[in-house]
Design a protein around this nucleic acid. Structure first.
Lengths: 153, 153
DNA sequence: TATTGTTATACTCTATAACTATA
DNA sequence: TATAGTTATAGAGTATAACAATA
């Protein structure tokens, strides 16, 4: 026969996250969400979500790039890019021009207004990044980027 | 009058991503997606998505934890946790028991089957992590985690 | 009056199937 | 036959409002 008292119902004071914190994926996801949150806050003034910004930035630095190239580079499904491109064109930040050698494709370009807009947007994005990673030294920040690249390249 | 030829329509051979790659957020997001993809593939056998796994793991290491504590720790909105908890209970991996000192709350616990299940699931998750970050040395992996923690803690 | 857990719901993000026009 | 761009649509994931029970 058992004379032991039943185990008292346990309660948790501080949640132990040590196992999850041993996983790169958990830490990368948490860090990503923090930076994305800062992005939403600081880039709302430009009316740009992270995906819009990435697309515009790639067009800025790759005049004549095609939708297909953007999709491949950014891992975006083509149907999901259509709306973005349409809106950016409606905002007169980009123009579509026929591709010189492929009649199916369109080359994407920034308008002069788009260039001016993106110059400022990239400055703001870089600033917000530095603020969100303020606890990292410049050397640590550089190394963090190198380590992350080793995962997805 | 202008006698210059119009600028030839530019095409892009290789997309230049150097600006985006200077941003921690871009790199963190890309790396996160790669690891999450490996997670989906390898953990599908357990019927666990990343959020389910995080929840189960926290319950495993914090017997008696409440839904509210999980939400705060994992940045999940309470309504979005309800369905997860219900399914995990239906699968008989967890049980809900009244909280000993707060009549509103329920303490969450793993069943014996849940413990056995999670022991294996955590091993698989750790393995998949090592595979997804195979290009990092153990020291680099450890440092990457430390750097990421500095962003979200 | 505030908090836990819950329902209902809406909104965003992402993915798939199928079409057209060009290669 | 394959590819670029597009349409329509479906499924995740995530967010807010409001409620009952308890603190």
């Amino acid at each position: 026969m058992s004379t032991r008292k039943p185990a008292p119902e346990p309660t948790v004071e501080q949640v132990d996250t040590s196992y999850l914190e041993s996983l790169v994926g958990y830490n990368a996801r948490r860090a990503t969400l923090v930076i994305m949150d800062a992005f939403f806050t600081n880039m709302a003034a430009y009316g740009l979500r992270p995906a819009d910004f990435s697309v515009l930035s790639l067009i800025a630095h790759n005049s004549g790039v095609t939708s297909r190239q953007l999709c491949t580079t950014l891992n975006i499904q083509p149907p999901n890019l259509v709306g973005m491109i349409n809106q950016l064109e409606k905002r007169e930040l980009i123009t579509r021009r026929p591709h010189p050698s492929d009649g199916r494709a369109m080359g994407l370009h920034l308008t002069p207004a788009g260039h001016k807009f993106m110059k400022q947007a990239e400055l703001t994005a870089s600033d917000l990044e530095r603020a969100a990673t303020a606890r990292l030294s410049p050397a640590e920040r550089k190394q963090l980027i190198q380590l992350l690249r080793k995962i997805y390249i």
